[in-house]
Design a protein around this nucleic acid. Structure first.
Lengths: 337, 337
DNA sequence: TTGTATGCGTTATCAG
DNA sequence: CTGATAACGCATACAA
C-alpha cells in the first residue's frame, strides 16, 4: 500500500503526464471528456487526496480562517464560533480558534501568529484592554480580510458585524418604563468598549423620550460578574431617592442585583424590575427567569462569515461593510409587575 | 516594500546561499556563530516570516490539530476546547474546530476532511449516533494520532481521556443515600454511550453497597433536555411506590425534574432530592442551586492535549494511553434535606 | 563551515 | 488536447 498517492502516481498508471491529471482534477476545459472521466475514476480507485500544502504553497491561500475571541467557553463567543463554522465549513474553510484571555499583549501575538500561518482571513472580537491598533494595520497591509464582530475598533477598511446596541438599550429601558417603573438605574460595564457605550446611550434616549429625568447617580459601573452586580445594587439603594428598576448591560451583574435585592427582602419584579443583556443560558433557567436582550450570536457568526466570504471574492475591491443586526428584547419574569 | 520576503531575499542581501540562511534560522550546528547572528539580524530587519506551507510540504507536518465535537457552543465542549487550546498554543499548534451536530455522517466527512488537511492529530468526542468505526481506522492507518475525550469508542491504538463516570454515579447516589433519601431513581440518557452506562453502573453499585434494593422501574431513559426530564419524573411519580430522590445523568433533565416536582407541589429538597451531572453553569445560578458532578472539562482538554503531545513525540512507539480523571461531586441545595 | 542540487505535490505557461 | 518544464519556499544530503 502506497503511503501517499500523488498526481504522478496516477499519471504513471495511466501513461499520461501529471499536468493532464491536474487538469482533469480541476475541471480545466482544455481536456477531453474521455481522459477526464478516466482520470477521475482511477483517482478515486487509488484513493487520491489532494495535498493541501502544495496547493497552498502554490496559491498562497490556506483555506483557513482565524477566529480570535477572549475565551471560547463563554456562551456568547462559542455561539458565534458555531455560526462561523457552520457557514464556512461547507465552503471548504477551516476555522482556527485562538483565545486572548482579554490580554492585549496576547492578542497582538496571536494576530502575528495567524498572519504567519497565512490564514485567508481573521474574524475577531477585540480584547477589553486593547488600545494600540498597530497589529491590525499589519493585517490590512498584508491584504488579509479582517472582520470585527461585536467588539469593534474604529479602523478604516475593516468590516464589522454588530448588533444595534443602542436599540437594545433603548428597548430594555422602554420596556421597564412601560411596565410601570419610573426610577430606572443603569449598570454599565466598560464604557471604553463601544458596545457598552451605545447601550448606555439607548438608556438615556429612552428616558428622554418618556420624559423621565436623567440622574447621574443612577448610573453605576460594574464588572460583568455576580459580585460586582451585588455591589452596584447596594450602592444604588443607598441613594436618597433609590431607583425601582435597573437595566444592566450584563446578565451576570443583573443576576447579582437580583440576588442582592432578594436577600434584602425587596421582591422582584413587584418592587423592583430588572433587565439584563446577552440572553445567557442561565437567564431562562432561573426560577425567577430574567428579562434580557438577545444578541443573536449564532446569526452574528454566520453574518461575519458571509462578510468575509464577500470580501474574499474581490480582493481588489476593498469593501468596508458595516452590518448591524437587530437585538431582541426577551421579556421574562424579572421585569413584569 | 516586498510582498513576501523569503530566505532567498535575505541570502541575496548577505551574499550567501539560501541553504546557509536556512541553517542559521534552524539553529543548525554546522554554521559559524558570526553568520548565524548576522542572518538572524537581517532576517528580523527584513521582516522575514517563515512560510509554513513550504515547511509543511517538506516535512509533512502541519502543526494543526483537529478538534471534533458535537457542538462548540455547549459549555462542556467549549471548555474542553479551551483547555486544549491553552495547552497546544504555546507549543506552536493551532486548533481547528469542527462540529458534527451529533450526525454520524457528518462526523465521517469531517474526519476525512481533517485527514485531507493533513492535521498532525485529531482530538475528538464521538457523536451520539456513531456506530460504524471505519473512518477511525482510516486515521490510524495514516498514523495520525487519535485521542478520544469523554465519549469514547473501544478501538485498538487509540488513547482516551475520560472521567471516572462510574465513580461519579456512585458518589452522586451515595450522597443521596447519606442525605437520608432511600428510594432513589435514576434518569439515564443513552446507554449506548459508555459514559452513561458507567454512571448507571455506579448508581447500582452504590445501592448495593448500602443494601438498598435495585428496582428496574426506577430507571428511566430520557434525553438530555428539560422537557424530557419532566416526562421522566412524571413517569416515576406514577409508580405505586414512588421514589423520593433521583440521580440524573444530565443536568438538563435534572432541571426538568425539579420544575415538574415543584409544579406538583413536591418540595425539593425536603420531599425529594435531586442530583444532576455535568456542572452546567446554570446549576449554580438557580435559586435552588443544583447538586451535580463536575467533569473538569478544562482539565480534560488539557490532558487530551498532553496525551497528543506525548504521542507525537515518538511516532514509532504506538502508545495506547487511557487517562481517567476524577469527577467531583458538588453538593448544593437540591439534595440537602 | 558553506555551496550545490534536489525534492516535497501542485498548477500554470508555453510549446507541440 | 496533451506534454514538458518551471515555480511556489524551504530543508537537507552531498560535495567542496
Amino acid at each position: 500500500m502506497k503511503e501517499k498517492v500523488t498526481i504522478y502516481d496516477i499519471a504513471k498508471a495511466l501513461n499520461v503526464t501529471a499536468a493532464t491529471v491536474s487538469r482533469a482534477l480541476n475541471n480545466n476545459p482544455k481536456i477531453s471528456e474521455a481522459t477526464r472521466t478516466l482520470v477521475l475514476e482511477t483517482a478515486k480507485k487509488m484513493n487520491y487526496e489532494q495535498n493541501k500544502f502544495a496547493l497552498a504553497l502554490k496559491s498562497g491561500k490556506s483555506h483557513n480562517v482565524g477566529v480570535v475571541v477572549p475565551f471560547v467557553n463563554r456562551n456568547f463567543f462559542s455561539s458565534i464560533i458555531r455560526g462561523i463554522e457552520e457557514e464556512l465549513y461547507p465552503k471548504g474553510y477551516h476555522v482556527i480558534i485562538c483565545q486572548t484571555h482579554e490580554d492585549a499583549k496576547k492578542e497582538e501575538e496571536t494576530i502575528q501568529n495567524l498572519l504567519n500561518a497565512q490564514v485567508d482571513g481573521i474574524l475577531m472580537s477585540v480584547s477589553k484592554h486593547t488600545q494600540n491598533l498597530k497589529h491590525f494595520e499589519k493585517v490590512l497591509k498584508k491584504n488579509t480580510p479582517l472582520v470585527f464582530f461585536d467588539r469593534v475598533k474604529p479602523l478604516k477598511g475593516v468590516s464589522s458585524v454588530t448588533i444595534d446596541d443602542f436599540r437594545g438599550g433603548y428597548e430594555a429601558t422602554e420596556h421597564l418604563i412601560k411596565s410601570g417603573y419610573s426610577k430606572i438605574a443603569h449598570v454599565t460595564v466598560d464604557l471604553s468598549l463601544s458596545i457598552y457605550e451605545r447601550r448606555f446611550e439607548g438608556y438615556r434616549e429612552a428616558l428622554k423620550d418618556y420624559d423621565l429625568p436623567y440622574n447621574e447617580n443612577y448610573v453605576v459601573k460594574a464588572k460583568s460578574d455576580i459580585d460586582s452586580g451585588e455591589e452596584a445594587i447596594k450602592q444604588l439603594l443607598k441613594l436618597k431617592e433609590a431607583p425601582d428598576a435597573v437595566f444592566s448591560s450584563s446578565d451576570f451583574a443583573a443576576l447579582g442585583a437580583i440576588r442582592q435585592l432578594q436577600s434584602l427582602g425587596i421582591s422582584v419584579p413587584q418592587d423592583f424590575g430588572v433587565v439584563g443583556f446577552s440572553n445567557e443560558p442561565f437567564t431562562q433557567f432561573m426560577e425567577l427567569s430574567m428579562s434580557t436582550v438577545d444578541q443573536a450570536p449564532v446569526e452574528m457568526g454566520k453574518m461575519s462569515a458571509k462578510v468575509f466570504l464577500e470580501q474574499i471574492k474581490d480582493v481588489k475591491v476593498k469593501v468596508e461593510k458595516k452590518v448591524e443586526l437587530s437585538p431582541e428584547l426577551i421579556v421574562r419574569k424579572s421585569s413584569l409587575k
